[in-house]
Design a protein around this nucleic acid. Sequence first.
DNA 1: CGTGATCTTGAGGGAATTCAATGTCGGTGG
DNA 2: CCACCGACATTGAATTCCCTCAAGATCACG
Lengths: 227, 227
Amino acid sequence: MLSPTTHRADPIKILSMRHLPPVNGHQLIETGELMGASMSFRRNAEIYGEGEPADYLYKIVSGTARTYKVLSDGRRQIGGFYLPGDILGLETAEEHSFSAEAISGCKALLIKRRTLVALAGRQDEIARQLWSIIGEELRRVQAHNLLLIKSAQERVAAFLLEMAERVSTGNAVELPMSRQDIADYLGLTIETVSRTLTQLEKIAAIQLSSSRRIVLRNRSALSRLNS
Amino acid sequence: MLSPTTHRADPIKILSMRHLPPVNGHQLIETGELMGASMSFRRNAEIYGEGEPADYLYKIVSGTARTYKVLSDGRRQIGGFYLPGDILGLETAEEHSFSAEAISGCKALLIKRRTLVALAGRQDEIARQLWSIIGEELRRVQAHNLLLIKSAQERVAAFLLEMAERVSTGNAVELPMSRQDIADYLGLTIETVSRTLTQLEKIAAIQLSSSRRIVLRNRSALSRLNS
DNA sequence: CGTGATCTTGAGGGAATTCAATGTCGGTGG
DNA sequence: CCACCGACATTGAATTCCCTCAAGATCACG
């Protein structure tokens, strides 16, 4: 059962809670000054579009989301994957610089940006958390940068290790995204991702139980690939 | 001559001034609560190292700096180039995640992070500027990400356009960094950068006056390459 | 069971890298 | 002043890695 505190009007909790328990009954949580409206998105539904006003942050409650950009020639670059507990749509600009979509069915908590910023001005703890969140995002994007200069093997290995940290139960990784998503995240083609995975299986670094389920058999081998 | 305000104890000015006039005489500027110590770095000198405590921000006054990481196999990835007016070392973590060096002789204004953060808690204007600076940094890193999935031509073209915006006088771009720096920034080899530049010269998009001086002859051609 | 979507595998080609040599520029000392 | 030197940059040839195009294989779903 839910602990009573999850229903309290506490913006700090909204920001910091890693997994928010499901919102039972009504879709609106009263959280003091910070309205947390819960919103559901079905598979492939748009959460927000590039260029739209960035009025809300979205805290993923369940499911997975992706941010992406489509270049003029049709190539798609995925900026990141967002799992439960992650915060999406963090921009200091007035407009979203990426689009966001639900990968699987997906529930998110909406947080009004202006309200949050105003609140941060008065409550140090909120401000501190906001800084930590945007700093985390910056580090994530920088790590992604480092990925993109590496070889296909290194990129895939790094991706697997990253996902293992985020979704793993033991050594098994249940991937929420398709090969195409992975490819567009890593700056590779879907074929190269597929080939690299079978290659990693051949050297006994991983085991492909099914296409979406991957077991890490030899993490140190993967780390070693990770230059 | 310097206007008197440049010497006033005004942290907002320190953050926002695009180009800080040279500090004549003593090396320490009294800026109220925010001490702005001026510091000089010679070519290739380290400004800070990866993993060191991130106690200071550095506002470049003159010269150019680079941030970088060296992977275990020796490859170097340059995270960004910082020109006069840019702020370096912005981390919300306790430690620097990149190293920083002066590319050319370089003067920077040191800003104590803790002091700045404390100040931001009391002055909205400071907080607002801090947000804008880190948001800018985030956008810069994301744009860099997009670069790294493109072809060599596109990367070099995008790099030239970026530098043109930042250092150009008309159509001439005076590059402060070496080919190796450019290569490590773009995730290419020095040879590929060189070849691509001569290629761009052949199609009359640019002119290589000298190796460090490049004239943009056809910006729309460069933009077109920029997918 | 079909049917479409997703994933894997194969063969060939192309873009960037590697390795190697040559060229250019700025400084230093004869 | 010019010859030499080292650092930096360009160019060339061969190779490697990833992409493209194409054909199967597998999976989910009606």
